[in-house]
Every structure is written in C-alpha cells, then in structure tokens.
Design a protein around this nucleic acid. Sequence first.
DNA 1: GTCTATAACTTGATAGAC
DNA 2: GTCTATCAAGTTATAGAC
Lengths: 195, 195
Amino acid sequence: MTEISAKKQRIYQEAARLFQDRGYAATSMRAIAGAVDLEVSSLYSHIRSKEELLQEICFRTAGQFMDAMQAIRRKWDNPVRQLEEIIRFHTRLALQDPTSATVFSDEWKHLGPEEVKSFVSMRRNYEQQFLEILVQGQRAGLIRDLPRHWIMHTIISGLAWLYRTQHPVPPDEQEHLIQTLLAMNLHGIIKSQNV
Amino acid sequence: MTEISAKKQRIYQEAARLFQDRGYAATSMRAIAGAVDLEVSSLYSHIRSKEELLQEICFRTAGQFMDAMQAIRRKWDNPVRQLEEIIRFHTRLALQDPTSATVFSDEWKHLGPEEVKSFVSMRRNYEQQFLEILVQGQRAGLIRDLPRHWIMHTIISGLAWLYRTQHPVPPDEQEHLIQTLLAMNLHGIIKSQNV
DNA sequence: GTCTATAACTTGATAGAC
DNA sequence: GTCTATCAAGTTATAGAC
C-alpha cells in the first residue's frame, strides 16, 4: 500500500507541468517550490531529489505504454486491429495527459545513466512488439511490404504532435480525431486509389 | 560579405552537437570550450553569448524551410506534387543535417522572448502555406476531405523521427526512404484498397 | 586570440530551530 | 512539515596581462 499524500501529488503535477514548459534542465527546484507555495527545503520532506520527480513521470508513462501493448496483443489477434488499438491508445493518452506524454518523450535523456539504460531497454521492447505486429500483418498480406522500421517510426512519430502542440482537441472531437488518424495512417490522404 | 572564420564555424558545429545531445540548458560554455579545445573566456572572442549560438542554428534552419516552401510553390502548381516536394525536402534536410534539425525543432523555446516571438511567427507562416496547399488539393478533388490541421501536423510530425532517431539512413537508401515516406503519407500502409 | 583570475549569480541539497 | 540560513559547486560573462 503506497500511500501518496495530496501534497506529494501536487508537487509531481506542478513539476511535470514545468518540465513540459521549460524542460527538465531549465526547471529549478525553486521554481517547483514556488508553484506549490513552499520553500525549496520543504520539498525535500516529500521527495528525495529533483531527478526522482523525472524518474516517476518517465517510468509511470513508460509502464502505461507497455501495459497497453500487452493488453492489446492479448485481446485481438488481427494485426491491423492491433495497430488500430495502438493508435487509439496513443491518442487517448496524449489528449488525456499531454504533460506526462511530453516529459516522457522529450526529457528521459536527463535521467541518470542507470535509469537511461532501463528506459531505453523498455522502449526497445515496445518497438520490438510493434515490429512483430507488422511482420504478422505483412505475412498475412494485410500490410504493404514496406520496411517495418520506417513504418513504425512514421506512425509513432506522426502521433507526437497530439501532445507537443498546444491545441488540445476537445473530448467530443476525440473519436473524430481517432478516425482521421486511422484513415491517414492506414489509407493515406490521396483520394484516387489507382495504386 | 560576412566572413566566417574556420574556428567560429567549428564552435557553432560543436555547440549544435552538444545542444542536440544534452539540450541547450544542460550544455555549459565549459563543455563547448572543451569540445573546441579552448578556455571558456576565449570563446567570447568569437561569439557574443551562448544564446547567440542557439539563435544562429534555429533561424538558419528556419530560413531553409521558408526558402524551400517558397521555391516549391513557385516551381509546381499541382498541390499533390507540392506536398511530395515538401516531404522530399524535410527528408533530405533531416538526413543531411540531423543536428541542426533537432536543435531547430526542440530547443527554440530557450530563445529569448523576442526571438521566440519571431520564431513562432515564421513557423505560423510556414504552416499557413502548408494549409493552403491542402485547401487547393481538396478543392481539386485530389486530397481527402479530412481536417487540414490534422493532416498537416501528422505529416510534419511523422517525419521528425528522421532526425530524432540515431539511425542515419545511408545516402544510397535515401531515395528508397523518400519513396516509402511518400507511399505511406499519400496511400497509407494497408494493401486492400476497398475504400 | 588566448590565457588566468574573478565577478556576480544560480544551482541542488542539507542542518537545525520550531 | 515548514521554515531560515547556509554550503559547495556550477553558471555565464568580463577584465586585463601577454
């Protein structure tokens, strides 16, 4: 039972917002303290260090992606459907918690050497599973025989604007957005289908 | 005729590499000085400040994108061909100078307030021109009637992995990569064309 | 142009009173 | 848990000798 005090949660939340806006390295403990109306030294009653804040955000979000990937592969066996669900998950997470998504995506390099190793290893695992889905889709003749690494990076990277740009899509447009993203990634944007 | 000494160029180059690896805020003048085998104070014989280094990289790359956009719109009038050329340019620049592309894309927020304003204004101009191409393509019935902002962000964001990931694609694979990116963006990855 | 020395300031983190 | 006070180290940048 890990009890997390309300104040501790507040600190994590404000830190994440500052990391998103200014980046980890440009965010001082004084800035975080100011955001939660405390003196710097008081922060250390709740957290061990600045880096601990970054670790929590990065690995919590990494865990969410790993869990989603595993759940999707268990629930469906059609690789195209699995891809659809992955795009769905990325989209929902990006819209629901763009702050954590940005910090997870852009600030992990400021983790300590050990943590970077662990983080990169998790990401490699995630990408490996993504590639396996593409292999299955290509073997089944459902997905074009394009280089899988390029497909994967283009899809994942193509979703990153959802958290990086300021415009949060309102909740009632979320399903429309997802349908559009699926259409673009799966069928492209060209009308005439003379391929 | 602005003459740029070899040493000054070396400083810019090493600074860009360090900004790419560690981020602007986490890169010290000492690190830059060390990379070019000088003492910190000697740097100031060649440059005015740390931020000047960032400014040069960001605005030089921004200028390249603006120039390319203008040249493409002058040279072709088919909007789909214009999109193709834009994707081509992004790809070539990302492979040829991934360091500048990364700093341009990720570190502009550390510019001073005035420079940020100018930078964002250039980007808005670029995006406006991109959207106009999509409008023309949709009016001509060539491009699907999907929300144009979402199309634009997905395409641009989907190319960002080209400079963010470590794997530089070897020069002899560049044309294959471009063809694949065009195929994915324009026609998607799904084989069956029952749309 | 490059150096040593240093100014002026900010950084993350700690000690100890309350 | 929160504070004041403080530390040691690091930051960008400058002054002035050579």
